[in-house]
Design a protein around this nucleic acid. Structure first.
Length: 738
DNA sequence: TGATCGCGCCTTTTT
DNA sequence: GGCGCGATCA
């Protein structure tokens, strides 16, 4: 068992533990994933457990993929392939595809994402004549989602208040709509599976029999439905292996319940617990800072994380003037690390609390003409053009999907206006059938349809013919070919790239770029589809609905990664920036009056801090604009928790605070003080008044230059694009004259 | 019918 | 500062 040699005694103890329920409480960077992977290998190689009898549940698809790759090395590809390995959602989706009948759902179900859910809740509320001003659909949906994650179907939902009554009514209607659309939302995947196990013993028995060992990563973030699934499946053999860190529980808002750890202790009397405190990732400084932040939380086991990586450099804490200055600081600092320490650009991660914060950072990277990787924010699968295309595919797969129908019936515009669509939907509701079936009924001779103008009727029939054509074709074509055909027949390319033709006005550059980007997304989706040569449309749609943005994080591109603290979970980077450490942002203002939510903000910060291997840079702004207007910010309370001896101010000495800078704004910059002491003695490359040519931005004039060498920052007024600040050393820009 | 403009709301976090 | 929704016009 060569792989055991690479484990420390604590890890090995957990990996080779006897059968029965096992809980591994492990701190960050303690090799959790490795322990989990090794356990699987141990079961298969040493205990002769057939791999198809093992189910391993990870938190993201990315984690699953990496684990499978590692296991392919350890077990060989053919054996690794037979493992059941994936997220809870993906695993349930697969089970439900097989067990549609006992689960009481359609085999052709489609997964409804957050966007579809929102539409459906709105529709349910409209059907019930409920005022969406008084009852925000978002919060009603949150209540429904909460109920589902607690395995409470609408029938048994017991309202505790008037608002609860409303929720119950919407929940019932919403669920009826889902079912009519043959749709399952994310929560349904878990709830329906768990309820099926509860009600259909013979089905459960088959799965209990098949899965003799179940392993779960990030157990602290499981919800009740997921716990119930585990409980059902391991009821007889108790071979449950959970890896958890209660300090990293950051999904309470979506129903995760870290008390599941305690539940485990009471439900499995024979539970054995292993604790991993040795950290392989971070320097002692980083661990000390992280502990200083997390120790304020009550009700936790205080782990003493230790490392032999040494003390490491101090944590840099930097106050910026505003979010743009903060972003510029981040970019400049990365450039310095790259220049001075020979770091590669992919070593950096920049984290923030809310997706909205990525904008200023992206702009700073673009200004400096530096590449970056972005997780989330403009999530690929929620782009309009991508959703449109998926809606066409969903319609082919499941014509009764009225949500997709409504989305694309008139995209690109084909003469079916709001009036026609409403008429179709009304007819569908009256007859209790889907819009697609109404369209079919129109075609029958003698049927004039629901009072449609003949022109609209022609459009409807043309659309129906088109979709039916695809449906027939889909039996022969691969998914990517089907996509091509859909694009062709709908004229989608023209719609995305040139639909503005008639207006004649000159498009600005940004609009052009956006169009091309949109078209690029369409092509990208077709590329993804091309990987599904040997898979069905159903599998494609399921996978696509369940991928997260982190899953697609590419290791090939050598560029800094921008991501939320939530999506940073499970990842590590040599150098981590956490930005926006301000009261109201981190901790977020929504957590101020709820101690448990404040504790979660603290854990979130802890997760961020412990992603760093070598260095941490923490930044906050003196002013930050929220909703457009700029307001003074207060440094985060979490910064106060980090002992001073672990930190230092930023590069330049003396450090100028935002307050000082506000009074001297402009004058200090014009002096062009080098950002750091002991700089190389180069001349500035650019002088005020020079005309320059930039490869991307075109011609312009230098308005300002400060800093030297790699730190030289120039402000250029470009003829086409206006003012830009650039890192001179890293910009493809040449002097024309002056 | 469809495109355009303006208003109001908003922001946690994601499988 | 942006996005969706509703009112308004070609």
């Amino acid at each position: 068992m060569a792989f055991l040699d690479h484990l420390n005694p604590q890890q090995r103890g957990a990996v080779t533990a006897q059968e029965g329920p096992i809980l591994v409480l492990a701190g960050p960077g303690s090799g959790k994933t490795r322990v989990l992977t090794s356990r699987v290998a141990y079961l298969v190689l040493d205990q002769d457990v057939p791999p198809w009898r093992v189910m391993a549940v990870t938190f993201t698809n990315k984690a699953a993929r990496e684990m499978r790759e590692r296991l392919e090395e350890l077990l060989g590809p053919s054996r690794a392939r037979t493992l059941t390995l994936g997220t809870f959602h993906a695993t349930c989706a697969r089970i439900l595809r097989r067990e549609a009948e006992p689960a009481g759902i359609s085999r052709d179900y489609v997964i409804f994402d957050a966007d579809d859910q929102a539409r459906l809740v709105k529709q349910a509320m409209a059907d019930l004549n409920l005022d969406d001003k008084r009852y925000p659909p978002r919060s009603v949906l949150a209540a429904i989602s909460q109920a589902k994650s607690e395995l409470i179907p609408p029938e048994t939902y017991a309202p505790q208040s008037y608002y609860g009554e409303i929720v119950k009514r919407v929940y019932e209607r919403y669920q009826a709509l889902l079912s009519a659309n043959r749709g399952l939302d994310f929560d349904d995947l878990l709830m329906v599976t768990a309820l099926m196990f509860r009600q259909r013993r013979e089905v459960l028995a088959r799965y209990q029999e098949q899965y003799q060992h179940i392993l779960v990563d990030e157990f602290q973030d499981t919800n009740q439905a997921q716990y119930s699934l585990l409980r059902h499946l391991t009821r007889d053999h108790h071979n449950l292996f959970c890896v958890a860190d209660e300090d990293q529980s950051i999904y309470r808002w979506r129903g995760a319940d870290y008390r599941n750890i305690r539940r485990l202790r009471s439900d499995y009397a024979d539970l054995e617990t292993y604790i991993l405190e040795r950290n392989y990732r971070s320097t002692q400084t980083i661990l000390d800072a992280a502990r200083a932040v997390i120790r304020h939380n009550r009700d936790r086991v205080d782990k003493h994380l230790y490392t032999d990586r040494g003390q490491g450099p101090e944590i840099v804490v930097h106050e910026a003037y505003d979010q743009d200055d903060e972003a510029q600081f981040v970019v400049d600092t990365i450039a310095q690390f790259v220049a001075r320490e020979g770091r590669s650009a992919g070593d950096f991660a920049i984290m923030y609390r809310t997706n909205a914060q990525s904008r200023a950072l992206e702009e700073a990277f673009v200004r400096a003409s530096l590449p970056y990787k972005l997780v989330g924010a403009t999530r690929f699968y929620s782009r309009r053009e991508v959703k449109d295309l998926l809606a066409f595919l969903r319609l082919v797969h499941n014509p009764d999907d009225d949500v997709s129908m409504a989305r694309v019936v008139n995209v690109p515009a084909r003469g079916m206006g709001a009036k026609t669509i409403t008429a179709l939907e009304d007819a569908a509701r009256e007859q209790g059938i889907s819009v697609y079936r109404v369209l079919q009924s129109i075609r029958e001779p003698g049927s004039e349809g629901p009072g449609l103008w003949s022109r609209a009727r022609t459009s409807c029939l043309a659309f129906l013919d088109m979709v039916e054509g695809w449906t027939v074709a889909s039996r022969e074509l691969r998914v990517a070919e089907l996509v091509s055909r859909i694009l062709e027949e709908t004229g989608y390319e023209d719609y995305i790239r040139h639909s503005n033709d008639g207006t004649g006005g000159r498009e600005d550059l940004a609009q052009r770029e956006q169009r091309e980007e949109r078209w690029g997304n369409v092509l990208e989706l077709r590329n993804v589809a091309a990987d599904y040569q040997h898979h069905s449309l159903a599998e494609f749609l399921t996978d696509v609905a369940l991928v997260s943005d982190v899953d697609n994080l590419s290791a090939d591109v050598d560029a800094p990664t921008l991501l939320t603290l939530h999506s940073a979970k499970g990842l590590e980077f040599p150098i981590v920036f956490i930005t926006g450490l301000e009261e109201g942002l981190l901790p977020h203002s929504r957590s101020f009056d709820e101690p448990e939510e404040m504790a979660e903000e603290r854990r979130l910060t802890y997760v961020g801090l412990t992603r760093a291997k070598d260095r941490l840079v923490l930044t906050y702004a003196f002013r930050r604009s929220r909703f457009g207007s700029s307001e003074a910010a207060v440094p985060s309370r979490f910064l106060d928790d980090i002992p001073d001896e672990l930190t230092r101010g930023s590069w330049g000495e003396p450090q100028m605070s935002g307050r000082e800078r506000e009074t001297s704004w402009g004058s200090a910059e014009a002096a062009g003080a080098p950002a750091a002491g002991g700089e190389l003695t180069t001349q500035p490359r650019f002088r005020v008044g020079q005309r320059v040519l930039h490869e991307v931005f075109g011609e312009g004039m230098v308005l300002e230059s400060r800093g030297l060498g790699d730190n030289e920052i120039v402000t250029v007024n470009f003829e086409e694009l206006g003012l830009k600040r650039l890192m001179a050393g890293m910009s493809p820009m040449a002097v024309l004259e002056g």
